[in-house]
């Protein structure tokens, strides 16, 4: 039931907590750190964070269900986020999302996170990524791509090993 948090990560987390006069403030930053390490936020992770911050698990759980970036299931090694919002839509992001979905055998009508059967890629149709002038845009994990044509998407995803 317990979470195996490596020492270096715990040290990083302890340092983050010092940034705030009240521990609870660190909860979103801790969720990021945990999700980056484990790939998702498990029930055990919620309990671990709660005890670290002297909170009740519900105080952490309600954040996981509120903030769209947190997930309770593992995702693919590469998470592709395609922007759905107006400027990107005018620039063809609907078709781009559709193209990536069909490439991976996923349902393009679904906007939420879905993972391809090989477990390598997950795709999500997200809201404005604040780069509307270079539509359509997408992110793969932390990296950001602008003016993504279908060919470019194929090429970028081909390089994800």
């Amino acid at each position: 039931m317990s979470l195996n948090v490596p020492q270096t990560l715990e040290a990083e987390i302890d340092e983050l907590i010092t940034h705030y006069p009240e521990k609870r403030s660190a909860s979103v930053m801790l969720l990021h750190a945990i999700q980056e390490h484990f790939g998702y936020v498990s029930k055990e992770a919620i309990e671990w964070i709660a005890s670290k911050l002297e909170l009740k698990p519900i105080n952490v759980y309600e954040l996981v269900t509120f903030y769209p970036m947190f997930r309770q299931e593992p995702a693919g090694k590469y998470v592709v986020k395609v922007c759905r919002t107006l400027s990107c839509a005018l620039g063809g992001s609907g078709k781009l999302h559709g193209h990536i979905c069909s490439k991976l055998g996923l349902d393009s009508r679904k906007h939420g996170l879905q993972t391809a059967s090989d477990g390598k890629f997950s795709v999500e149709f997200v809201e404005c990524l604040a780069s509307c002038g270079t539509a359509p845009v997408m992110m793969i994990n932390d990296d950001f791509y602008e003016g993504v044509s279908h060919e470019r998407a194929d090429e970028i995803m081909g390089k994800c090993q």
């Binding site: 940034h19 403030s25 979103v28 969720l31 954040l63 903030y67 769209p68």
Partner: peptide
């Protein structure tokens, strides 16, 4: 000054 990250909510 510290950097605090949000998590996808407008």
């Amino acid at each position: 000054i510290h950097v605090h990250r949000g998590a996808g909510a407008y």
